[in-house]
C-alpha cells in the first residue's frame, strides 16, 4: 500500500501530512501531528475519548481515516484555548472540578463545544444526552454537566458582548 498525501486544516492551521490509507485520523493526530490530547480509550467508537470535529460535525476520530481529512476542517481539544486563554468550557471544567484522571476530558470538551455551537442554551437533559457518547469512569458526570451548563452561560455572555 502506498502512502497518501493529505492537505487539511487542523485547529485553523493548514497542514499537509502523509499517512497510510488504513491509518485512522486519531493515529495521524497523535503519532504524526503530535496532538496527543485526543485519546484512544477503545478504538471502536464506544468511549468518545477521541472526539474531534470534522467540518463542525462531532466524530470519533478512531472511526475516521486520516485520508478522509482531505480538504476538511478538523477541530481538536488543542484548538479550544486561545494561547494561554482557556475556552469557557475548559475554565469551567477546572472551576467545577469536572475532571479527575482526565483521559475522557478532551473528548467531553470537544463534544460539549459541538453542543454549544449548535445550541447555546441547552437544558440539563439536553446536555446529558449530548454527552451520552462520552464515557467517564471517575466523576459520575454530575460536575461535567454543571461545568457545561456554567460554560454555556459564559459563552452566551461573550456573544452578547460581541454583538454590542
Amino acid at each position: 500500500m502506498s502512502a497518501v498525501q493529505v492537505s487539511t486544516t487542523v485547529n485553523g492551521d493548514a497542514i499537509d501530512f502523509v499517512c497510510q490509507p488504513t491509518e485512522t485520523l486519531l493515529d495521524v493526530l497523535r503519532n504524526r501531528l503530535g496532538l496527543i490530547g485526543s485519546k484512544e480509550g477503545c478504538g471502536t467508537g464506544d468511549c468518545g475519548a477521541c472526539s474531534v470535529t470534522v467540518d463542525g460535525q462531532l466524530v470519533c476520530s478512531c472511526l475516521v481515516l486520516g485520508a478522509e481529512a482531505e480538504g476538511r476542517k478538523i477541530g481538536t481539544v488543542e484548538g479550544l484555548a486561545d494561547g494561554d486563554k482557556l475556552h469557557p468550557l475548559q475554565k469551567q471544567f477546572i472551576d467545577n472540578a469536572a475532571l479527575q484522571c482526565g483521559v475522557c476530558t478532551p473528548g467531553f470538551l470537544v463534544a460539549a463545544k459541538a453542543l454549544l455551537d449548535r445550541n447555546p442554551n441547552p437544558t440539563e437533559q439536553e446536555i446529558r444526552y449530548a454527552l451520552a457518547g462520552n464515557l467517564c469512569r471517575c466523576t459520575g458526570y454530575d460536575k461535567i454537566v454543571r461545568a457545561v451548563n456554567a460554560a454555556a452561560r459564559d459563552v452566551r455572555k461573550q456573544q452578547a458582548r460581541k454583538k454590542r
Binding site: 496527543i36 485526543s38 488543542e78 482557556l86 471544567f93 482526565g102
Partner: peptide, 12 residues
C-alpha cells in the same frame, strides 16, 4: 482547583 487541571483540560 486541582494542581494538574490546566494541562488536563488543555489536552497536554
Amino acid at each position: 482547583p486541582r494542581a494538574d487541571g490546566w494541562d488536563k483540560v488543555a489536552g497536554k
